[in-house]
């Protein structure tokens, strides 16, 4: 009777929600940090493990559980190098073991690339007012156009104003490309890998991710500070530690 009950409970909780894959031979219990406060633990294949929690359901509502997924991943990252999983990767224990064994060589290569390194996401934005002022004072054509328009009524200079705006925007784009490639190249030189992503807003100059050796994190920080001093009047710079989604892309469930 007892064994029947256990089997029934096990089959109801047959799904394993996956947060990350880590390089570890040792079983690890992360505590009740999972979705629905479930216990988070490891399922192993040789020296690689999936970090999971049990569940009676295969799908989860991202609106309810998105934050918990990320918070659990951040806690795991504090102790291990991770191949992070995007939200919603849930399957059976058998499928996870099959996935780990089938992809073992590939996962090992990923860990060779990731172990001892951190992904740092850098976002650089214009201090837009300062930059526009600077463009106006340094570009002769723009300065001349501005003088022609100044003091004249809006309705009579509408076209000129639009042309002026277009010129300012063009100059901004030109500077953006130059500055972005320079910052990217300089930080890229002290990184193991780097990736430039699409800017998220008009005022963004650079949105990039750098894979940095932990022994070089201080150098990276110093260089960002140097760049901030060089471009401080024009630009705002901010970088954060993030799971290395930019440098590995693994899904257990397709």
């Amino acid at each position: 009777m007892k064994s029947m009950l256990r089997t029934e409970t096990q089959s109801k909780r047959r799904w394993r929600y996956v947060y990350a894959i880590i390089p570890s031979r040792k079983e690890h219990d992360f505590g009740q940090i999972g979705l629905d406060d479930e216990n988070v633990y490891t399922i192993h294949y040789r020296e690689i493990a999936a970090v999971v929690s049990d569940s009676s359901t295969k799908t989860f509502e991202v609106l309810d559980y998105g934050i918990t997924h990320q918070q659990a991943l951040e806690k795991i990252m504090k102790e291990y190098c991770v191949i992070p999983m995007s939200f919603g990767q849930s399957t059976t224990e058998g499928d996870i073991k099959t996935f780990l064994s089938r992809n073992y060589p590939k996962l090992r290569i990923y860990f060779t690339k990731l172990v001892g390194k951190t992904e740092l996401g850098l976002k650089v934005t214009w201090k837009i007012d300062t930059t526009i002022k600077e463009i106006a004072s340094s570009n002769i054509k723009i300065r001349a156009m501005k003088h022609q328009i100044e003091g004249k009524p809006l309705e009579k200079t509408y076209r000129q104003r639009l042309t002026l705006g277009t010129k300012v925007a063009e100059e901004l784009t030109k500077r953006e490309e130059k500055i972005a490639s320079e910052i990217f190249a300089r930080l890229g030189r002290i990184s193991a890998d780097a990736k430039m992503n699409k800017n998220l807003s008009d005022e963004m100059v650079l949105n990039a991710a750098f894979l940095v050796d932990k022994t070089k994190e201080q150098d990276f920080d110093t260089l960002v500070n140097t760049l901030e001093q060089e471009y401080g009047e024009k630009l705002l710079m901010k970088y954060v530690v993030a799971p290395p989604y930019n440098f590995v892309n693994v899904r257990i469930r397709s």
Binding site: I132, R161, L164, G165, V168
Partner: peptide, 13 residues
């Protein structure tokens, strides 16, 4: 005034 003039087309856009 100069700043406003320069910002206007950008803001409008």
């Amino acid at each position: 005034i100069v700043d406003d003039l320069l910002r206007l087309p950008v803001d409008l856009g």
